[in-house]
Amino acid sequence: MSGITGMGTGTVTAVSSNGEYSFTKPNRDSITLLPGLGVAGDVHAGVTVKHRSRVAQDPTQPNLRQVHLIHRELFDEVAEQGFEVAPGQLGENVTTQGIDLLSLPTGTLLRIGAEAVVEVTGLRNPCLQIEGFQAGLLKQVVGRDEAGNVVRKAGIMSVVRAGGEIRRGDTITAELPEGPHRPLERV
């Protein structure tokens, strides 16, 4: 990935939340993470799953998608293919830069700002709403590698382990779990 310096540290470039079901999330000056729940005031916050399609399957599932993070570098990548995407427009809560989110193993702790800590649970599974947002964009954020494996690039999901306020410019530090590392899977 061009522009990503490494797995270990990065920066928050935007924070977003929305209290209503909507594909995009407006940028905010700051967001507050609540332990075990997610982003204060965000429609996806909660102990149990909040994503509509998952609620329909089983509303008692644990919410492994409390905080959605996307790397800013993805926007540059899709811009090369003619797509214009800004922070919050793909529904993420935290837009990052300089950290290779997609390469982090399951269970990685991300320390964001002074207090907040999220635990990485898996990859976001890009949905058809992305295609509705911009025709052709879904193909840019999900595809297949040379071996035919599905590659998902639309960010990662996490749960809040320690609460706190986060804002643009905050540092993100990754703490990898004890090995062996498990690669991220769709959640």
Rank of each mutant, 00 (worst) to 15 (best):
G3F: 05
I4H: 09
N18H: 13
G19I: 03
R28P: 12
D29C: 13
S30W: 10
I31W: 02
L33A: 15
P35L: 09
G36A: 09
A45M: 10
V49L: 12
K50V: 09
S53C: 14
T60A: 07
Q61P: 07
N63S: 10
Q66P: 14
V67R: 00
V67N: 03
H71E: 13
E77G: 11
E77C: 04
E80G: 12
G82C: 09
F83G: 03
G88V: 08
L90Y: 02
G91T: 00
G91W: 01
E92A: 11
L101S: 01
P105G: 04
T108P: 03
L109Y: 00
E115P: 05
V118K: 00
E119F: 02
E119P: 03
G122F: 03
P126W: 00
C127E: 04
L128D: 12
F133A: 11
Q134G: 09
A135M: 08
V141R: 01
V142E: 09
E146N: 12
N149D: 11
V159Q: 07
V160H: 01
V160R: 02
G164C: 03
E165W: 02
I166N: 01
T171E: 08
T171W: 05
A174Y: 02
G179Q: 11
R182V: 15
P183H: 09
P183F: 06
E185F: 14
R186I: 15
V187F: 14
